[in-house]
């Protein structure tokens, strides 16, 4: 015994055995900061949630991943017939398909992302009520699969551009920044709608309409040039308006509308921050009302 106790202290003071972290659980009031440590700690879960969505996405479909290619191509085809051939929307001299695809790229991502994120919490109630992890991961991960689809869409666009023998302008270097803004806008609205849908299931029905309004309020099928100059700033209040317009400027070399873009960037950031904190504020009630 004496020998043992003489040797023991050295063994006991292992770093892992030292003071375990203390965690305090209590009611919190008001706005809640984002716990970056926790998010970092759980980062692998975010990866697994995205991975799950990707794995599950095209299971039991015959065409599988081909849908990611078909969807934008089919939409482009339909819009080209309706808005290009019948409505003859001015495109600044570009083939309509080339023109509309540049808008569909970010908008399709935004549309599916907001829709998925908005429904993500109520679709995964069992996770909310049975296990703890940063709740922000649920809507965040739901846009992951959309990102892969967007990457595929970019590839398809490359082929379309090649078919039309169209050379993108050097300004495509701005694309990553624009993609980043698109993600920010999608997440912002996604967080907000996810939190609202948990409390008010009505939003299930509101979201599709809202997205349709977004589609026509953004220069997806039409061009920013069609709007009188004085109204362009107002159009920029819609985050996606300035962003989508900027995709055309970056890829197709059309004129930039800098003031509109700036307003859209501002509303995007505001939307993101508001969505994020609204989510944080309400997340403590999710398990009780989900």
């Amino acid at each position: 015994m004496t020998v043992m106790s003489a040797e023991l202290p050295e063994v006991v003071v292992l770093p892992t055995m030292a003071e375990p972290a203390e965690m305090v659980i209590q009611a919190r009031k008001g706005w809640i900061a984002i716990d970056w440590n926790e998010i970092w700690h759980y980062r692998e879960l975010l990866y697994f949630l995205v991975w799950r969505d990707l794995k599950v996405r095209y299971k039991q479909t015959v065409l599988g991943i081909a849908w990611a290619v078909l969807q934008p191509v089919l939409s482009t085809f339909i819009f080209t017939i309706i808005f290009g051939m019948f409505a003859k929307i001015p495109t600044g001299g570009l083939p309509y398909a080339v023109f509309v695809y540049a808008g569909l790229l970010p908008f399709t991502f935004f549309q599916t992302g907001v829709n998925q994120a908005g429904l993500s919490l109520i679709n995964q109630q069992n996770l909310l009520t049975k296990v703890y992890f940063p709740r922000l991961f649920v809507p965040t991960s739901s846009i992951g699969a959309g990102l892969i689809d967007m990457a595929i869409s970019f590839g398809v666009y490359g082929i379309i551009l090649a078919c039309y023998r169209f050379e993108p302008s050097w300004q495509v270097v701005y694309l990553p920044f624009l993609v980043f803004l698109t993600i920010l806008a999608t997440l912002g609205l996604g967080y907000l709608l996810a939190a609202l849908t948990v409390s008010y299931r009505d939003f299930r029905y509101v979201i599709p309409f809202m997205l349709q309004i977004f589609m026509y309020a953004s220069p997806v099928v039409w061009s920013m040039e069609m709007i009188p100059k004085k109204y362009r700033l107002i159009a920029g209040l819609n985050p996606m308006a300035g962003i989508i317009d900027a995709y055309r400027s970056a890829i197709l070399g059309q004129a930039w509308h800098i003031p509109t873009l700036c307003i859209s960037i501002a509303t995007t950031i505001a939307l993101f921050i508001f969505g994020l904190f609204y989510f944080r504020k309400t997340e403590r009630r999710f398990a009780d009302i989900a």
Binding site: E19, P20, A21, E22, M23, V24, I25, Q26, A27, R28, L128, T129, K130, V131, Y132, R284, A287, D288
Partner: peptide, 20 residues
Amino acid sequence: KVLSRITEPTSGQIRLRGRV
């Protein structure tokens, strides 16, 4: 559920020492 942080208590406090 309160101990696992799934839902917040209305009042009171819990201290946990260690990975839960």
